[in-house]
Amino acid sequence: MTVTVTWYLVLAAALFSMGAAGVLIRRNALIMFMSIELMLNSVNLTFVAVSKHLGLIEGQVAALFVMVIAAAEVTVGLAIIVAIFRFRSSANVDELSELRG
């Protein structure tokens, strides 16, 4: 018995769950962003592992596209956080309750 594709997939599931827990538990917007990055990276791991398993390379191309979109998302997200910080002097998501009715 050697390393199988299931190990990589279960590891990616663990990373994804940790990232989801981070988004739910943390209330600093930057750390929530980091948790989202963890989740995106775990999905990339799934893409690459399954592409290895199926003998295709389309999964690696998909992982590259995910990375590009993640970079764009970080850029815009951090700009939004900076804009909110200029407005509220805080990166705490609990204080951003203007939409509450």
């Binding site: 299931t6 290895k52 398993h53």
Partner: peptide, 18 residues
């Protein structure tokens, strides 16, 4: 969520070496 996903993955992909 981890238990559910991991269970499904082990069920679907077991014993396929790469």
């Amino acid at each position: 969520m981890f238990v559910l996903v991991a269970w499904g993955l082990i069920d679907a992909f077991s014993n396929t070496a790469i």
